[in-house]
Design a protein around this nucleic acid. Sequence first.
DNA 1: ACCGGCTCATTGTCAGACAATATTTGAGTG
DNA 2: CACTCAAATATTGTCTGACAATGAGCCGGT
Lengths: 248, 248
Amino acid sequence: MGSDKSTAGTAVGSAAGAPLTGARIGRVAAPIREQVLDVIRQGILDFQLRPGQRLIERELIEQLGVSRPTIREVLSRLVAEGLVTIQPQHGATVAVLSPVEAEDIYEMRVPLEVLVMQRFVKRATDEEIAQLRGALGRIEEITEAGSETQSRLRAKDDFYQIVFEGARSPVLAQTLQTMQGRIRLLRATSLATAGRPEASLEEIRQLVGAIERRDLDAVAAAATAHVRNAAASALSQLAENEAETAQR
Amino acid sequence: MGSDKSTAGTAVGSAAGAPLTGARIGRVAAPIREQVLDVIRQGILDFQLRPGQRLIERELIEQLGVSRPTIREVLSRLVAEGLVTIQPQHGATVAVLSPVEAEDIYEMRVPLEVLVMQRFVKRATDEEIAQLRGALGRIEEITEAGSETQSRLRAKDDFYQIVFEGARSPVLAQTLQTMQGRIRLLRATSLATAGRPEASLEEIRQLVGAIERRDLDAVAAAATAHVRNAAASALSQLAENEAETAQR
DNA sequence: ACCGGCTCATTGTCAGACAATATTTGAGTG
DNA sequence: CACTCAAATATTGTCTGACAATGAGCCGGT
């Protein structure tokens, strides 16, 4: 199964005499820990690893075929991202987002998302704006087809990816990306998928329209509305879940 | 010097027969890597480690008396905090903040700081507000005494500590704390200390006043002004420095 | 049926090792 | 004398193996 070990190790080695060609494309260096990081993060973000689930080092080692130091480094990184919690003598678990934290994150997201969207307006090329329109189109398709949550999430990720690129602010992008990751945790917790795809879509349409018109105020309004609505939807659903759980 | 090794190791072990007393207070567990993390972070924040300086694993190991995995874990964490940069096959250096990044961070800080201050107004106890006034007093003293940059920074840290506590939003607090850390890097880069202590002090006075009156709008205005001015000052100084360096 | 002790699972930390790559130094040449 | 190429060195990336210490669950005794 997971015998990825060989990936980096052997491969290129000492082939023959060809002295110049052997380099560049070989690209032996695909830092293992980056790969591991991506795998686990994706596992969390795709809900394969559920919030609250324990992440036992030995198991991860076996499944991924890497060594313990690597795993530990990766887990540390994920802690920093807020996707994993470590209890001192007890180990790592996939983070569980409390409603209060979720609310905070949404509240922080509002102004930051306004900022990034306005940046996009100011800095993106026409081509990038066109790409954004394209990404919107894909979201529309998926929503109309009533497709899986997974693919809609992915389409939205693409959308944001374009925004982040065009906004030319790595710091802002990274912060927002982390926040969105944590919020996705929430979605896993509340099983949600907060089924308001149509409303959400319309908000995004508004947003893209405002961006194309380069109307900063409208952009701010649309971004604010979008995040606020998403927050309201997610939190109410969460509250519901909470109530149910409590009743039991 | 750094023979902290013994801290955890020997201590409690297998003393004699006393079966019950050995526990609790002993507190053998002071996670080494947390200590290491604090030491290095503090080193960076106190300018002992200058931006751009290389952080060679072997040296850190020798100086701190811990093992390599520990060091690497800590460095990873610091990367996540934005205080350290790692270039793939080349190692870690203390992060250097570019003017562009700095501007971004300040811009993000504005709305977040408004948020945290408003939260403080809404959630802090009267006692906490009084503590804030006290912290302001200490900043005043230090400023009037024309004391060292270091102690003024520390006093301001205390001030913010109270704000973060009272705002009851760990997520927000952590984000802002990280940002402030990165900004402090900037200060080290531009040697700065941005000598505008009086103006800054007056702004903080305004802020505290608004908080005591529980005037949310005034709080927002004061917080915005404070961050904006700090940004302007820091960035202009940075630009100056840049120009000088370029001339040479 | 409850409490205490014991075993086991898991983490925290270390030491040492090896390969792969970047940087620097040095030597040879035009 | 400047420049290019090759060897030597320094440093990171990763693995293996080991041990102590702590927390959790189980089992037997009262």
